[in-house]
């Protein structure tokens, strides 16, 4: 029960903040950051929210269903723009995968290179 209260409280504070900034960022996302902050600052112990968090995340897929059923109301709009939707989503996905993987590997190697300059022959198996 403490866990549920803590999550609700973070959610509430997130929504308050969101209202203050004219819903620039959704309240639930701010609530997530608040929970993360509270855990990092040790205001909340991980064990207090672990049970309820794991429960919610395990069943998260269910929570999308009612929203998805809303497709029933925008079906014609969707079918009209089908090609744009599919092409844009899929092309952008490939780009994100490539960019994130490439940038991360580049930066990792550069940092490893720097540390291996200070202590040479560290045996970098890359």
């Amino acid at each position: 029960m403490t866990g549920i209260f803590l999550l609700l409280f973070c959610y509430l504070m997130g929504c308050v903040l969101s209202t203050l900034m004219h819903h620039f960022i959704p309240g639930s996302v701010l609530g997530m950051l608040l929970l993360f902050g509270a855990l990092s600052l040790r205001w909340i112990r991980p064990a207090q929210v672990e049970g309820v968090s794991r429960f919610l995340l395990r069943h998260m897929m269910l929570f999308f269903v009612p929203v998805g059923v809303g497709l029933i109301t925008s079906y014609s709009l969707l079918s009209h723009y089908m090609v744009a939707i599919i092409v844009a989503s899929l092309a952008s996905t490939v780009l994100v995968i490539a960019v994130v993987g490439w940038v991360e590997q580049r930066l990792e190697r550069r940092m490893k290179h720097k540390t291996s300059l200070s202590k040479p022959h560290d045996g970098d198996p890359a």
Partner: peptide, 28 residues
């Protein structure tokens, strides 16, 4: 659909709460 959405609002609420729960995963 409006009626369906209204009657299943509890589920929408849990969706928001599960975003907050992601803060735990991030910390973990």
């Amino acid at each position: 659909y409006e009626c369906y959405r209204e009657k299943t609002q509890v589920i929408d609420f849990l969706l928001g709460l599960s975003v907050v729960a992601l803060g735990y995963v991030l910390h973990d």
